[in-house]
Amino acid sequence: MFEARLSSTALLKKIVDALKEILHQSTLDCSDSGIQLQAMDNSHVSLVSMSLRSDCFEKYRCDRNLSLGLDLRSLTKVLKCASGDDAVTIKSADKADKLQLSFESASMDRTADYELRLLNLDQEHLAIPETDYACVVHMPATEFARICRDLSTFSESVVIACTKDGIKFSANGEMGSVNIKLSETSKGDVSVQVEEPVTLSFAGRYLNTFTRATPLSEKVKISMAPEVPLLVEYPIEDYGYIRYYLAPKVDE
């Protein structure tokens, strides 16, 4: 038996919004310690890893490890029927083929129960190696979203260059070019830790997709090392994270 109750559906909506653009279907791996998800996009260019500890939930019970295969678009449709301040309980019996979602209004005078068909997804998990990132940048999540949006107007490719002076985002296309540089600020909303400078090129389309997680957190953490995937991490309150890994473009 798996049962988890969140006091606010808004958080679940934000999490699913952060995933559904890049993953249409995915498996939630539920265990005693919490809920995990790991999946690649269809093109195998990026990988999403989510972790939500059990103490995020008002009530959490998971008697045995369970994998719940979900169609995230269908889950979005169900979540649209709920109000953000509803409490939500998700429940599944062992070996069940359905997930139950119950929404309870804040005034507790309305309950709505939904059943969502579970999918049998054959999902492979990748081993993510421990990486000592040469550059780690923290910045406001809204600033990162704005930069990704603005650069994608110019080019499909985005170059991210990180030095001790700051982080620079560049795009160069037919209509012209753009360079946006952020330096470390004294008020601490942008911080840049650099062991060695790194410059890598990425597909802007994916960076834009990652910024769907912006409502989850004020800050985003960007980590880079030479010739390894970029890591873009959004914390989920104090209870977990969504990490997006993006393979760099390589010179032909």
């Binding site: 492979e124 990748l126 081993a127 190696p129 890994y245 760099p248 390589v250 010179d251």
Partner: peptide
């Protein structure tokens, strides 16, 4: 000219 790398060339199957 650059081409898009695959995430599976960095992370291997468990």
């Amino acid at each position: 000219k650059s081409k898009q790398g695959s995430i599976t060339s960095f992370f291997t199957k468990k």
